[in-house]
Amino acid sequence: MTPDRRQVLTMLGATVFGSIAARTFAADRFDLGGIRITTVSDGNLVLPGDFMFGGLPEEELADILMRHGVSRDEVHPPCNVTLLQDADRTILFDAGSGSGFMPSAGDLVDTLDALDVAPDDITHVVFTHAHPDHLWGVLDDFDDPVFTNASYLINQVEWDYWRDPDTVNTIGEARAAFAVGAARRLEAIEDACEFFTAGQEVLPGIMSHATYGHTPGHTSFEVRNGNDAVMVVGDAIANAHVAFERPDWASGSDQDTELGAATRQRLLDQLATDQIPMVGFHLPHGGLGRVTRKDGVFRFISEV
Rank of each mutant, 00 (worst) to 15 (best):
D295W: 01
P77F: 01
T219F: 06
G289A: 04
A130I: 00
D107E: 03
H241F: 02
L32W: 04
R6A: 13
N239D: 06
I171S: 03
T167A: 10
F300A: 03
S19Q: 15
G234W: 03
P165R: 10
V46C: 10
N44S: 09
Q200C: 13
V126Q: 09
S253M: 14
S71G: 04
G33W: 03
A272F: 03
V279C: 04
T215P: 04
R184T: 11
N44K: 13
N225C: 09
R185T: 01
P48Q: 05
L112V: 03
L83D: 10
L32G: 08
A87C: 05
H134W: 01
V180M: 13
V126M: 07
H218F: 01
F147P: 12
W162L: 01
A95L: 00
A87Q: 12
G217Q: 07
A188Q: 12
G199Q: 04
T15C: 10
V242S: 02
I154R: 13
V233Q: 08
W136T: 07
E74D: 05
A261P: 14
R29C: 11
H68S: 10
G252P: 11
G260H: 09
V81P: 07
D4F: 08
F93D: 09
Q270D: 10
G296Y: 02
F25I: 10
N225T: 12
V291R: 15
R72Y: 02
R266Y: 04
I237W: 07
I64C: 12
P3F: 07
L259N: 11
T197A: 13
S41L: 00
L9G: 14
L84P: 12
Q200D: 15
R264I: 02
D94F: 01
S71R: 07
V157I: 14
F196L: 06
G96Q: 03
T215R: 05
Y212H: 14
E194L: 10
P119Y: 00
R89H: 14
D73C: 02
P284D: 02
M207Q: 15
I171P: 07
L108T: 01
P284F: 00
S220Q: 09
V233H: 07
H218Q: 08
S41V: 00
D63E: 14
D228K: 13
G181C: 06
G18A: 09
R224H: 09
Q7K: 12
R185G: 05
A238M: 12
A27S: 14
L112D: 06
Q275F: 05
M11L: 11
G172I: 00
N155M: 06
E222I: 12
V40T: 07
A176F: 00
G234L: 01
